[in-house]
Design a binder for these strands. Structure first.
Length: 311
RNA sequence: GCUCAAUGGCGCAG
């Protein structure tokens, strides 16, 4: 199970399956944890149907799914936007006398948030309380993120206050969520105020936090500041990743400054940061916006040569 | 040993 998990989190699900099959062959039969691990990996790779048939398979073979099995399946269905089926699974849990826990509810709350149904997310939040479970920092971070994505920063702050009133402390992800919300709107002063609060509370800004700040400056067209954040993170020993670079490249493309955009592409190569399909799309789009179609085609071919599939 | 929340492009939807 440990080997399976190792390969699955590395994205090599096929190798994970190899261990699963080896267990069957050698008479060390996979248990519920093996099934849960593989199902989760399938869902996270977007291979929902294979995950579901594993789930059916385990039931057929008389292996009882546990609470975590259902949480995995519910999360998988939520990621696919299949909220109806996710609710059906909660009913199915009941037949097996399994009670949804905080993770189950957090998963459903987040699913409804991502699906844009904030109202239903609040309904689930209330139901969770009614069932004697306490919404935690994960629950609130989902709700806050939903409001940030909708641009309703006022409501996001209210939720932050509400969680504090209930004795919950925002963590680094909660702060990063809010910082991103303000950055998306270009409200950099607020974003930096939250960053300071985050640090005062003992949390170090993560790579994701820095990327959110970089994006905020790019949204405002303040490319010097965006590059300044990169320098700052490097001083702290954090290396910019493909997201940091793509964000800045996108900013330069919007600024019609393709020279700088391509300079950064080169820098990525020099620093051993691989471009992904999003980075290429950003650059291709930048070229197309300027009617530089032959160069766009060349980049398109370059990405295919590198084994990246266009989406 | 297994499950939940945060960051980048385009399109679609709003």
């Amino acid at each position: 199970n440990i080997m399976m998990r190792g390969y699955c989190v590395a994205g090599e699900v096929e190798k994970g399956i190899g261990f699963f099959e080896e267990m069957e062959r050698k008479g060390c039969l996979p248990n519920v944890v093996s099934y849960n691990t593989l199902m989760d990996a399938y869902f996270k790779k977007g291979r929902a149907e294979e995950a579901m048939s594993l789930f059916e398979g385990m039931k057929y073979r008389g292996m009882e799914p546990n609470l975590i099995s259902y949480n995995v399946v519910i999360n998988g269905l939520c990621r696919e936007g299949r909220m109806e089926e996710a609710s059906e699974m909660v009913k199915e849990m009941g037949w097996r006398r399994l009670k949804p826990d905080e993770v189950t509810y957090n998963t459903l709350v987040n699913g409804h948030c991502k699906g844009g149904n904030f109202h239903q997310a609040l309904v689930l939040h209330a139901e969770m309380v009614k069932n004697g479970l306490s919404p935690n920092v994960v629950t609130y971070t989902s709700l806050i993120n939903s409001m940030c994505k909708a641009g309703n920063l006022h409501r996001a702050r209210e939720l932050l206050d509400q969680m504090r009133v209930r004795g919950l402390r925002p963590n680094d992800r909660t702060y990063t969520t809010l910082i991103d919300g303000f950055c998306q709107k270009g409200l950099m002063n607020e974003a930096y105020r939250l960053l300071r609060e985050m640090m005062d509370n003992g949390y170090k800004p993560s790579l994701v936090t820095y990327n959110a700040l970089i994006n905020g400056h790019c949204v405002m067209g303040r490319m010097e500041e965006a590059l300044g954040v990169v320098r700052e993170m490097e001083e702290k020993g954090l290396a910019p990743d493909v997201v940091s670079y793509s964000t800045i490249i996108s900013g330069f493309c919007k600024d019609q400054n393709l020279d700088e955009a391509f300079r950064l592409k080169q820098e990525m190569g020099a620093r051993d940061v691989s471009l992904d399909a999003v980075t290429y799309s950003t650059l291709i789009n930048g070229l197309c916006q300027q009617n530089r179609l032959p160069e766009a085609c060349n980049l398109f071919q370059e990405m295919i040569r590198l084994g990246l599939s266009p989406d």
